[in-house]
Amino acid sequence: MSARRPNRFDAMNLVERMFDPAPQAEDRLSSAGTWECGGTLWASNEQQTLTCCRVVDETHDVKSFEFQIGDGTPVRFEPGQFMTVSANVQGQSVERCYTISSPPTRPYLLSITVKRVPGGTMSNWLHENMKPGNQLRAYGPSGSFTPASGRAAKSLYLSAGSGVTPLMSMTRASIDLGLDRDIVFVHSARTPADIVFRKELQRLVELSGGLRTFFVCEGLGDEEDWSGPTGRLSLQLLSEWVPDYAEREVFTCGPAGYMSAVRELLREGGHDPARYHQESFDIAAGAAPEPAAPENDTAHETFTVKLSRSSKTFTTRASETVLSAARKAGVPIPSSCSQGICGTCKTKVLEGTVDMKHNGGIRDREVQKGFRLLCCSRPTSDLVLEL
């Protein structure tokens, strides 16, 4: 990397501007999808080595893994963003997206908080193998689920399970900066023992008069003296806790079923959908099936794809995505969600054209600069890619 190193004050000023209800003219996004504020950045399509510094047991099946990047340089990202980690598991290369749970106000340490999922390839590998001193490869921060997507004077954070992680990064950042923002944080869990960051959230409430937290659990588990509500979040419960929820900018993250239920709950309560933001992919999920190709007369037309840096070439049909064709040809291209969401496969198209149908993983200004998501791009001509 070149140019000057970003410093702590740059990061703090950046995050403070992100939480400001009035957008600042100097905020801008780079072509790689990272936030520029006068310093060197870790691009979302650039892979680096992380070294584990500490492992923290958050609950019986959730651990936080703290990392230092490369030679210890600070990392710039937006609270709520994720990164894609890569590991060799039983001889197979596995990549997964995990939200960064640490705040950008602590730029020398990155953490991901991972729930051990039954049958989950990466989550089980991390829980069993990642120890201080061990290394992990990762791609730079990406994603648009951040405070910048909905600046407001008052916020409502709604999370379930490990969906607490991006909202925790936002909360930690706000309190680190002493912003004393009006945040109501409502978290749903299976039992009280499954509430991730429970003690820390209680401590953060003591540090900030603007933060309020509420928990609802489906059952008691082993904590029979639990005094909070049991069951699931309802409009009645939300109205009791947050009477002004309709006036708040809402950020939601959790399992797909939970987020769907929350959207319906808020719609029923009259909340403006324009002020609703959610993390749009399952953090613990693996690669999704390739999006269906549209039927047309040119579906079987064949094109050539050349990689400018390695000079490798492969062929692809008009009916398949560039990423799928690359995999069949044995050409390694960074990828994770395969749904046009995470942005890991973002690549610049130097020559040629594609038909791209994405789901939010790339910004308009990146498209204007020639970048495309290969997982959801089908060729309409021969291509030359910046790879």
Rank of each mutant, 00 (worst) to 15 (best):
T191W: 01
P379R: 02
T73R: 13
E264N: 07
M170E: 10
M168A: 11
P166W: 13
G269V: 07
G178V: 10
E58V: 15
L50D: 08
E279S: 12
T347M: 07
R365N: 12
G70L: 10
E36V: 15
S30V: 07
T165A: 14
A3L: 15
G143W: 01
S86T: 14
S335R: 04
R8I: 15
F65N: 01
A318P: 02
P132A: 05
M130S: 08
L136Q: 08
S64L: 08
G330Q: 06
C53I: 03
N124L: 06
G219P: 00
G91C: 06
A284H: 10
E290I: 02
L350W: 05
W42S: 08
F214Q: 13
E268D: 12
R378L: 03
Q202M: 07
G269N: 02
G370Y: 03
L179R: 11
Q68Y: 00
L374V: 08
P291Y: 09
L207C: 05
D194C: 12
G343S: 10
F314I: 08
N296D: 11
A153V: 05
A246H: 05
Y276A: 02
Y276C: 03
V62A: 01
E223N: 03
A261P: 01
S31Y: 06
A189L: 13
R181E: 13
C376L: 00
S174R: 09
E290L: 00
S208A: 09
R5C: 10
C345T: 04
V89L: 07
H60A: 08
Q278F: 12
L136C: 10
V205E: 14
S188R: 01
E223V: 14
V184T: 13
T380A: 08
H60F: 10
E268Y: 04
G70C: 12
A318W: 00
Q47P: 06
I283F: 01
A246I: 11
T105F: 04
P6Y: 11
D182F: 10
A87Y: 02
L14H: 01
